[in-house]
Design a protein around this nucleic acid. Structure first.
Lengths: 263, 263
DNA sequence: ACCATCGGTTCATATAATAAACCGCTACAG
DNA sequence: CTGTAGCGGTTTATTATATGAACCGATGGT
């Protein structure tokens, strides 16, 4: 293995719970020799990827990562990341795939892709805003937002987009609980009659839910078998998206998704 | 030099203007052998610090930096970074030092430190909000904000805190122009009678002005000689702060500050 | 006063980094 | 269609660099 890899691997031992790590600890955790660990960390410190506190002499993540992150943000528009993933998702599921992004308290369509498998498909609007209470994406996001923010959204008046749209907060809450239990959001006829969709929440690098990825199809095509197949493809796409975002999937959801993928 | 350093140094060739770099280009720029460059980049890619585009095969900053940046944010409160810097600044200048941070369109005091050099000193309020048109920090920030945002702030009614406070937008603009010309903000008697202060703007990793660092003193003590001494200490403190923030100082200001430091 | 552990250093040894030449490919020019 | 120059990537013997056991002084708890 390359020396550089060993150095970079050291960074993986830092997380929210362990933001400050001493030399000996780090050497033990990583299984590297203390002298080696010291040298590697010194090089990381030299380049600002790590930082050493003067008093405790412990190491933590350095300031240079902020510059790099800003660069990454500037260089990689979310949409460009989303498109190829959605296109693959649309292709493997044979249905319309779309991704939405939480911006300014609204859930906006970021990108979408169609499949050529069927003549009849769910069409999307560019930069459309999705109602939280009437779409699977909305449920997926709402169920993973901090309670006070979710409450604020639920407190707003809810328009019945179709006859099946839930408009009472308690009805929506029931669906959110269900979403949390199974690990994905699912709706049928709530946004448009005869349209069903399945959505997964997406999380950013801070672990906050900031969007959703979904597949929408005519209800008749989303049979139990198709649902299962769609879900596994969705989970793969969601994981891929979050890898590109540097996103942090909550452990509970990770466990639920793993179970689904195994089945 | 260590191999790890060589690998990390490659990341320095990426910036806003060059977010995508080919292998041969990168090898040329860095002066490394192409094979070496390839191996190093491969290791960076493996750990997500860099990313290779499938089509063009060019390299760019990878998604892992987002995770690291989120960690850094969580681990290092701005205030904890500011305090030791301000304490040193207060000590070397013999006057009160403070740092303010732009949050929600307001300039809030983040931290401050006093000097023991004089019995009479400028006192600060915890979490105070600084008026843009009456403080050197306000001028420093305002002069470096995007025009439309600065205009919006200037369009709001301005209260005369003292008799010397400028309250007409054109008067403020004159001072902002002066601030841009010399590279620092300076006020006297505008916030409180007989109090003068000097401030420098601070920039975040995206190159946006998000705060200021300043020294405040009785007008009589801030003589030309003291001003010169204070400025060099302030510049050092500002640079140190931005290093910890991963901040990007605009080239013009960098040039101005260098000139001041030389003189 | 002792022992354990800390961060850091030393130095002979062994392993991993290096660079020139080469490959297959694409694109453009004659 | 062909020659050439550039690309990203690979191979190889050569060599420079990373490694780790032992060691150091400092610190802190028993």
């Amino acid at each position: 293995m390359g020396t550089t890899s060993k150095a970079l691997a050291l960074l993986n031992y830092f997380d929210r719970a362990h933001s400050l790590i001493g030399l000996s600890d780090l050497a033990r955790m990583s299984g590297t020799n203390k002298a080696t660990c010291f040298r590697l960390m010194s090089e990381l410190v030299e380049h600002g990827l790590a930082e050493q506190l003067p008093e405790s002499r412990g190491y933590r993540i350095g300031p240079a990562v902020l510059r790099l992150a800003a660069l990454r943000d500037a260089a990689v528009p979310l949409r460009d990341l989303a498109l190829p993933i959605l296109q693959r998702l649309a292709h493997t599921t044979g249905e319309t795939a779309h991704m939405s992004h939480l911006v300014g308290g609204k859930l906006a369509t970021l990108a979408y892709a169609y499949s050529a498998a069927h003549a009849m498909k769910v069409m999307m609007e560019e930069a459309d805003v999705l109602p939280f209470h009437a779409t699977s994406s909305g449920f997926a996001v709402l169920a993973n937002l901090p309670p006070q923010i979710a409450d604020a959204i639920l407190a707003q008046p809810m328009v019945a987009v179709t006859k099946a749209t839930p408009t009472r907060p308690e009805d929506v809450r029931t669906r959110l609980a269900e979403m949390r239990r199974v690990g994905y959001g699912r709706t049928a006829d709530t946004y448009e009659a005869d349209v069903a969709s399945i959505a997964l929440p997406l999380f950013d690098a801070r672990g906050a839910c900031t969007g959703a990825i979904a597949v929408a199809a005519p209800v008749t095509r989303l049979t139990p078998a198709a649902t299962a197949k769609t879900l596994t493809a969705l989970i793969a796409a969601a994981r891929e998206t979050m890898a590109a975002w540097g996103g942090q999937l909550p452990p509970e959801l990770d466990a639920l998704w793993r179970k689904i993928q195994k089945a």
